[in-house]
Design a protein around this nucleic acid. Structure first.
Length: 447
DNA sequence: AGTGATGATTATCC
DNA sequence: GGATAATCATCACT
């Protein structure tokens, strides 16, 4: 071998036709005899053309001879030029590729989860979500879980970074290796820097696709970790007594329409010291999203509605208790306030005014006899909205109010529904067994 | 350990 | 999207 690795150089204005580049080089290397040069070129080309027909040994020998030929550098350059003009121009156009959206999503997620990016105590959003989800108004004795979660997350983080580093290292090593190989090969075949660049690009793309798989599996690992730690069902905590009371109070005082608005939920959550819960939900696409809602309150009401509806009898006692409580509270409010609404006619303001009492009068009495005290309380200060509902509840126990269309229209859009609505669902047992004790006729199939 | 209560999740419906 | 019904998983009490 007589030369350094010879990379292709681009020659402006050098084309194939007429081979001016070759003639230039010829002048630099050849003698003054034009016929002799032509003869040389003819010989070389002839040898190159027939080299494939020869045996391996012969070809090797011929290659070596050609390599040592004085015309070789010139011919090499010409071949490089030709190759550059043809091959690269064809491929060059289709190399642009758009930034990968999927990769960006993964990157964002890893960043949000605290896996990639700067260390911040084991994942910011996730840790916060964990805190909120498992905190749930039940106290803050979940630090052990947190540290466990953080430990696992940082484990994932560590593995991720180690793997990433490995991939990068491997990528670099492989790239260097390929570059060296190409440089080596450039002695015997025309390889341009551009070509090497392109090859490096291909390698990088291959490795980044591997990286993407790493990112994907890391994301999955984090999701699994999250679902395990944040799945509050696994670590369910009952609300404390106070919270339950507050929720129950609201429920029974809005029995006609126990669907708290978002504002009401917020208020209740605050009252109950229920933290804003961030929950993980899986969308239709299977991806996880974090939504911030007063889920716990919603869950509570959802459960309460369904369980109340299923077995009113069982909840009757509780209902009466809260009805009384609410009524007493309202009484206190109204008696302390400046309002002069007379509570002397208990039925007038709250129930009789709103509900169709025509067919519930006697049943109404039966409620009085059932829980006289509580109902007495409900009769006082009946001008308060909550009392109306309270009374409606008491009446509902007798099966009376659901018949009252006006009441339904007034308080509960759902109550208007003839079938499957809230009121309708509450009535049957009350109607059939208004005076029965708790849990009398209902089959609780809830569990 | 057994069991009911209860908070959360899931599937389905509207 | 929210509500419901069914179900799961855990708590809490016995």
């Amino acid at each position: 071998m007589d030369e350094q690795p010879r990379l292709m150089h681009s020659h402006a204005g050098v084309g194939m036709a007429g081979h001016p580049g070759l003639s230039q080089h010829m002048e630099g290397t050849g003698g003054t005899d034009g016929d002799g040069r032509k003869q040389d070129i003819g010989d070389i080309l002839q040898q190159i053309m027939t080299i494939t027909d020869q045996s391996l040994d012969e070809a090797q020998a011929r290659k070596h001879a050609l390599n040592c030929h004085r015309m070789k550098p010139a011919l090499f350059n010409v071949l490089c030029e030709i190759k550059e003009k043809t091959v690269l121009s064809i491929r060059g156009a289709q190399e642009e590729e758009p930034p990968d959206a999927q990769l960006m999503r993964l990157d964002n997620m890893l960043l949000a989860e605290g896996v990639s990016g700067p260390e911040k105590g084991g994942g910011s959003a996730a840790a916060a979500a964990a805190a909120a989800a498992s905190g749930g108004g039940a106290g803050a004795d979940n630090s052990a879980e947190h540290s466990d979660y953080r430990a696992k997350l940082s484990q994932i983080r560590q593995i991720y970074h180690t793997e990433l580093e490995k991939y990068e290292q491997a990528c670099n090593e492989f790239t260097t290796h390929v570059m060296n190989l190409l440089r080596e090969q450039s002695r015997t075949r025309p390889i341009s820097p551009k070509e090497i660049e392109r090859m490096v690009g291909i390698i990088h793309r291959k490795f980044s696709s591997i990286q993407m798989q790493l990112k994907q599996s890391t994301c999955e690992a984090v999701m699994i970790l999250r679902s395990r730690f944040l799945d509050a069902r696994r670590k369910r905590r009952n609300f404390n007594k106070q919270a339950t009371e507050i929720l129950n109070e609201y429920f029974y005082s809005h029995l006609s329409n126990p669907y708290p608005s978002e504002e009401a939920k917020e208020e209740l959550a605050k009252k109950c010291s229920i933290t804003v819960s961030q929950v993980q939900t899986r969308g239709s696409s299977g991806s996880f999203t974090i939504c911030t809602l007063f889920v716990q309150v919603s869950n509570w009401f959802g459960n309460k509605r369904i369980r109340y509806k299923k077995n009113i009898g069982k909840f009757q006692e509780e209902a009466n208790m809260y009805a009384a409580k609410t009524a007493v509270n309202a009484t206190n409010v109204s008696s302390h306030g400046s309002q002069a609404n007379s509570p002397s006619t208990p039925n007038s303001a709250g129930s009789a005014g709103s509900f169709n009492m025509s067919n519930s009068g006697d049943l109404f009495m039966s409620v009085q006899s059932l829980n006289g005290d509580s109902y007495q309380g409900a009769q006082v200060g009946a001008n308060v909205q909550s009392q109306v509902d309270t009374l409606r509840h008491v009446i509902s126990q007798t099966g009376g109010y659901s018949e009252g269309l006006t009441a339904s229209q007034m308080y509960s859009p759902q109550g208007i529904n003839a079938n499957g609505g809230w009121q309708d669902a509450t009535t049957p047992s009350s109607v059939t067994s208004p005076t029965e004790g708790p849990g009398s006729v209902h089959s609780d199939t809830s569990n």
